[in-house]
Amino acid sequence: MSALDLKDVRKVYGDGDQKVVALDNVSLSVADNEMLFIMGPSGSGKTTLLTVAGGLLQATSGSVVVGGTDISGFDGRELAAFRRDRIGFVFQAVNLVPFLTARENLLLVRQFGGGKIDTDARDRADSLLTDLGLADRAGNLPSQLSGGQQQRVAIGRALMNEPPLVLVDEPTSSLDSELGQQVMELLTKEIKSRGLAAVVVTHDDRILDFADRIVQIVDGKLTSDSSDNSSASPSGR
């Protein structure tokens, strides 16, 4: 069973003259424990692909199967529960909650869907923060953290609910080269050590070494036979 299976997925925005085909019969499979990178120019449909795979939007047609569950027919409430339990999002814009501390930003995702913050959740948040080198920053608000630290909190939040699939949108777009490398190293370590699958969207070719496999997307179509970094984990640097 693969972590993500897209079959003939089309996503069309608008209709009539305004019609935009953002995903054009995309079929894609991401194995468990695989880190897939999607590269493509701006407007090619990368974000749309993440949106559909993560249950933020329903595909116009085709099937989206995540960890064996077909989410194509889910309603809004089912999708919300699905996103909470099965998907970890790392947003391009980081999107931390400004009035919550680093630790509370992690615990946040436990509270939705009527969840409670128990000792288990607290322990997990603390160990994630420690893994991410943020143990001494747990009580800081996002505004008191650097860009790289904020991105690391966002990674911790994505991993908080132990999702089998992590979706990452342009993780290094707001970081300089060195910080970008550090964040990618951490992200890869966290994902690999937990045996998770990840889809990383980027147009930053300095981080392609972290990919297990790279897929190109142009005008909503995946180009076949993408390059394959067969090594399971990147060489540390």
Partner: peptide
């Protein structure tokens, strides 16, 4: 709007 969209993306329902 942005923050609430993030909450929803992370699994919050409109009712919450």
């Amino acid at each position: 709007t942005r923050l609430y969209a993030v909450f929803k993306a992370l699994g919050a329902t409109t009712r919450e």
